[in-house]
Amino acid sequence: MELLQRNPRGHGLNGPVLACVQMEPRVGEKHGNVVRSIEYIEEAAKNGASLVVLPELTNTGYVFADREEAFSLAEDLPTGETAQAWADVAQRLGVHIVAGIAEREGKRLYNSAIFVGPSGLVGIYRKLHLWDHEHLFFESGNRGVPVFDTPLGRISIAICYDGWFPEVYRLAAAQGADIVCVPTNWVPMRGQSADRPAMATTLTMAAAHSNGLIVACANRIGTERGQPFIGQSLIVSGDGSPLAGPASHDQEEILYAAIDLLRTRSGRTLNAFNHVLRDRRTDVYDTMLGTGWPSSRS
């Protein structure tokens, strides 16, 4: 397995380590995709990672020919074979894993992410904002923006196009999230020059800064049934600056960064007068954006 390792073995990193795997799933080759993803998880764990993020729809590939193909590749969660394989490796290696997966619930399909750890299932997230032809295959997510308590911090999940909506990051932050893991399949944006930073990376850095969150984006590479993907995975600190990446446009690689909860939480205080979350004008707009959910720590 030829991988570019950005800071392998966590050199210079103190505390728990977060890894984003940039790889090339192949549509329909579910067994091979899962086997390769486990190799990458093992590599990341060997280099000190405690939390590993994989791309969107890691097990199936992305560009389905039709809904029938998508349905045939999807699985029930958390009992499906892919979910069980990732849960087994999480337990064996003592790591947490967030990975994109096609979920089947009865006759409904979701573009989902499963979150597993050493003790088994942590949670499931369903993509809220569907992109382009995803509308032909998937239902919109119906589980909101959950935040999961873990030994590594309070962790939320978004998937790809969700990152274009500041409400997703705000709802995570308002519930006390420290980290947002983003399995993604970023594609070239219409009208954007290839010699400029990807819009996705700009949006990620802005969301991290304005919410005081670590954001970890694991993108894929390659071209699938004519659709190119742009790579450029990255891990961003709570002040909006990249901790690792952006990665290359076209290589499989693993990015590593430290999870520094003290720095992330304290960094939300911008100066003696300003705090990026407590300064919200909740007399003007609803603190939970009208969802009716109870707010948590900020």
Rank of each mutant, 00 (worst) to 15 (best):
M1R: 03
L4G: 00
Q5C: 03
R6G: 00
R9A: 15
H11G: 09
G12P: 14
P16E: 06
A19E: 03
C20T: 14
C20I: 09
V27P: 02
N33C: 04
V35N: 04
S37H: 00
I38A: 05
I41R: 03
A45Q: 00
A45K: 00
L54N: 08
P55F: 02
P55K: 02
L57E: 02
T58R: 04
N59K: 01
V63T: 11
E69S: 09
S72M: 09
S72T: 13
L73W: 05
A74Q: 06
D76E: 15
P78D: 00
T79D: 02
T82Q: 01
A83T: 11
Q84E: 14
A85F: 03
A85N: 06
W86F: 15
R92S: 10
H96K: 07
H96W: 12
G100Y: 02
G106V: 15
Y110C: 14
Y110M: 11
N111F: 10
N111C: 15
G120Q: 07
V122E: 07
V122M: 03
I124H: 03
K127N: 14
L130E: 05
L130K: 05
L130H: 09
W131L: 11
D132H: 09
H133R: 11
H135S: 10
H135T: 13
E139P: 11
N142P: 10
V145T: 13
V145H: 02
D149A: 11
G153W: 09
R154C: 10
R154D: 08
S156E: 06
A158H: 00
I159T: 07
P166C: 01
V168D: 00
L171M: 13
V182D: 04
T184W: 04
T184V: 12
P188N: 04
R190M: 13
R190D: 15
R190I: 12
Q192C: 10
A194P: 11
R196K: 11
P197Q: 06
A198E: 15
M199W: 01
A200R: 02
T202F: 09
L203P: 01
L203A: 10
L203V: 13
A207R: 03
A208H: 09
H209K: 14
H209M: 15
L213Q: 07
A218E: 07
R220D: 00
R220P: 00
Q227N: 04
I230P: 13
G231S: 12
G231C: 12
S233A: 13
L234E: 15
L234C: 14
I235N: 10
V236L: 11
G238R: 08
H249E: 12
Q251Y: 00
L255W: 10
L255T: 08
L255I: 13
Y256K: 05
L261G: 02
R263N: 08
T264G: 01
T264A: 13
G267I: 00
G267S: 09
R268P: 00
H275L: 05
H275V: 03
R278C: 02
R280A: 02
R280L: 03
R281Y: 06
T287C: 06
L289A: 10
T291F: 14
T291G: 08
P294V: 04
S296N: 11
S296P: 01
S296F: 11
R297E: 15
